[in-house]
Design a protein around this nucleic acid. Structure first.
Lengths: 336, 336
DNA sequence: ATGAAAGCGCTAACAA
DNA sequence: TTGTTAGCGCTTTCAT
C-alpha cells in the first residue's frame, strides 16, 4: 500500500506538505502543489480514511442509521437524505443495521469513531430510544417518528401526524359509505406510531357514531406474509366480516389484498382497502392502491436540513409535522 | 472519550494488559482479567474500532458491496449473506454504493482501509469490472453475475445460467401456445446478463421455428416506471402486438402489467406476462406473477461459503452456476 | 512556504 | 504473567 510518506519522498517534499495539498490548504507554493498532485496522480495514491479519522478532531460526517434492510418505505427517504446532504459540505454516512439491533448503541459507536456531527434515525420506535438517546452527545433527528414525547434535549424530528393521517383514511372510507371497517396494524404500544394511527382511526370512527369493536382490530407484523396470514385467518373465521379495511402500511395492504383474492373475494368490489405510506409499488398494484401518502421526499429534505441546522445550533428540539394526502387508487369503492 | 489508557490507569495495569483482556488473549491472570473487566463495565468503555483497524495487520472482515439502494432482488440476498457470514468467525461489512459509483474503486478503498480479506459484489456488470477487478488483491466473488469471461485470477462467481433461464421462460410461453412473444429488457451489451437472457430467449424461439423480429424487443431500464413507459408506448403504437411478454425482471413485469391494464387490456386474458427473479412481491401481485426464480437464499449461502473458501485458498476462480425454476403464477395462460 | 515532530487509540513484538 | 515501546497513516502545531 502506498502511503503519504512515499508520496512525499517521490515529490521531494515533506509529509506535511503533501498533507496540505491533500486538504487543499493555502500556504503551498503552486509549483510544489502541482508537483505533489503529479505524484499523487502517477501513483494512484488514495489517503487512508481510517488514519485520517483517527487523527482528526472533527469531521463533516452526518450519520444516517437505518433499521431494516428491506424497507421499501425508507429506501427512497434514505436516497433523498443522501442526495440533499451531498449538496452541502457535509458527508452522509449511511449505516444499515438489523431489525433486532440497538440503533442508539450503533449511533454512539459511529459518533465516537467517525466523529460524526449529527445522527438521523430511520426506523425503530421513539419509545425504545426514550432513555438511551440522551447518551448521544450530538444532535439527533428522528425521521418518520416524533420526538415530542422524548425528554432528550438534543433530539428533533420530522414526521407526519399519524393520528390525523389515520383519521383521514377512515374519513375517506366513511365518506364512501363504509361502516363496517376493520383495521390491520401492529402491536399497539403506547407512544408508538401504531398506537397513534389506531387512536386516530378509532376516534374518527367515534365522531361518526361508529363504535369500534376491538375484534375488528387485526394484528400483524409489517410484512406481506404476516398481513396475508392475519387477514386469511380473519376471513376464514367469518366469511366477510367487513366492507372496508384500513391497513397501517401499503405492504400490509398488499398482503391483505392477496388474502382477500385467495379467499375468492374482490378488491374493491367486495372489500375496499386503504393503505398507508404511499410507496411506489402501490401505483403499479392491481387494483392501484388508495393510500395515505407520507411525503417521502419532503421528509428527506427536511430531515437533512434540520440536522444541519441543529449542528449549527439552530432549531434544536424542533419537531416538524408534515401533511399527508390521500392518493386515490382503485382499491376503494363506494358502499351505499 | 474514555480510552484504553484511562482504563489501564483505573485498573492499575498497563495498556497491553487491557488490550489482552479486550482481545481475549490467554496469558492474563484471571484476577487481573476480572479487575480490568470490572473497570470496563463500570466506565462503559468501548474500544475505538478506527484505531484498532489502523493498527491491525489483518482482520476477519469480508466486504459486501451492493450497488443500488432500492434493489428488491438484492435485499434478501444481502440479508442472507450477512446471516451466513455471521455464523462463522468472519465479520460482514455491508457497503451500499450509488448506482453510478464505481464498485471496484469502493472495494479497493475498503480492502485497503479495513484490511478486508475478501469482497462480494452485488450489482453492476461483470464487463465493467473486467479490467479493474485485478486491482483488488484479495479474493472476489461476483454474486448473480458470472466471472467466467473475466481474465482476473482472483475472482469467482455464483449465478444462474441466464441463457438457459431465459430459454426456460420462452419454453414455458411456447408450451402454452404463444407464438407472438415480445421481450422487455435492458440495453444489450455484450457479456452482460441482458445479452445472455436475450440470446437465450432468441435461440429458444429459433428452436421452435419462431424467428424473433427485433421490433419486438422493447428496451427499458430495470424500474417500474421505465418499464411502464416502454410498454405503454409499444401498445399505443400497435394495439395488441403480442400475446405474451417475457420481462427480464419482475419489477419490469409489474410495470408492464400496469401499462397493459391502463391500456384496457387484461393479464393474462389478453397478454400473458412472465417475469424474472422471483421476488417476493410477485407472489402478492394480482395476478400472481409467473416468473423464472433465481434461488436467492442459495446464492447468498454459496457466495458466503465460496468467499470463505477462497480466503482459505480453496476453489479460487470457481464459477458456480445454480438452477432456476419457473414459479407458476396466474399471469400466463394458454393461447391456442 | 516548508519541515520536524508530536500524537490520535490501539496492537504486538520484545523484555522482564 | 505483565510492562515497555514502537509504530499503523495521517493531521497539525510550532519552528524555521
Amino acid at each position: 500500500m502506498i502511503t503519504i510518506k512515499e508520496v512525499a519522498k517521490l515529490a521531494g517534499v515533506s509529509v506535511s506538505t503533501v498533507s496540505r495539498v491533500l486538504n487543499n490548504l493555502p500556504d503551498v507554493n503552486p509549483q510544489t502543489r502541482e508537483a505533489v498532485r503529479g505524484v499523487i496522480a502517477a501513483t494512484g495514491y488514495v489517503p487512508n480514511a481510517t488514519a485520517r479519522t483517527l487523527k482528526q478532531t472533527s469531521t463533516n460526517i452526518i450519520c444516517v442509521i437505518v433499521k431494516g434492510f428491506q424497507n421499501q418505505f425508507f429506501a427512497p427517504i434514505v436516497e433523498g437524505i443522501q442526495f440533499f446532504i451531498d449538496k452541502t459540505d457535509y458527508i452522509p454516512l449511511i449505516h444499515y443495521i438489523d431489525e433486532s439491533a440497538d440503533e442508539v448503541t450503533a449511533a454512539e459507536a459511529l459518533v465516537a469513531e467517525k466523529k460524526a456531527l449529527g445522527v438521523i434515525f430511520l426506523g425503530g420506535s421513539p419509545s425504545s430510544k426514550a432513555q438511551s438517546i440522551a447518551r448521544i452527545k450530538v444532535p439527533c433527528v428522528l425521521a418518520t417518528m416524533s420526538a415530542r414525547d422524548l425528554a432528550s434535549t438534543n433530539t428533533s424530528s420530522v414526521c407526519v401526524d399519524d393520528f390525523a393521517a389515520a383519521g383521514k383514511a377512515i374519513e375517506h372510507l366513511v365518506g364512501q359509505g363504509h361502516r363496517d371497517i376493520a383495521i390491520l396494524g401492529g402491536r399497539r404500544l403506547d407512544r408508538d406510531l401504531v398506537w397513534n394511527r389506531f387512536e386516530g382511526a378509532r376516534q374518527c370512527l367515534a365522531e361518526h357514531d361508529l363504535a369500534f369493536d376491538d375484534s375488528r382490530y387485526i394484528e400483524s407484523k409489517f410484512s406481506f406474509e404476516d398481513a396475508y396470514r392475519s387477514i386469511a385467518a380473519a376471513l376464514s373465521r367469518n366469511n366477510k366480516p367487513f366492507t372496508a379495511l384500513f391497513a397501517m402500511s401499503d405492504i400490509m395492504a398488499i398482503g391483505a389484498c392477496r388474502a382477500i383474492f385467495d379467499h375468492g373475494l374482490k378488491v374493491p368490489d367486495d372489500v375496499s382497502v386503504i393503505g398507508f405510506d404511499g410507496i411506489q409499488i402501490g401505483r403499479y398494484y392491481n387494483p392501484t392502491l388508495t393510500s395515505v401518502r407520507q411525503p417521502q421526499d419532503e421528509i428527506a429534505r427536511r430531515s437533512a436540513s434540520l440536522i444541519i441546522q441543529n449542528i449549527k445550533g439552530i432549531n434544536i428540539g424542533h419537531n416538524i409535522v408534515l401533511d399527508t394526502e390521500i392518493v386515490i387508487g382503485d382499491s376503494v369503492r363506494p358502499c351505499f
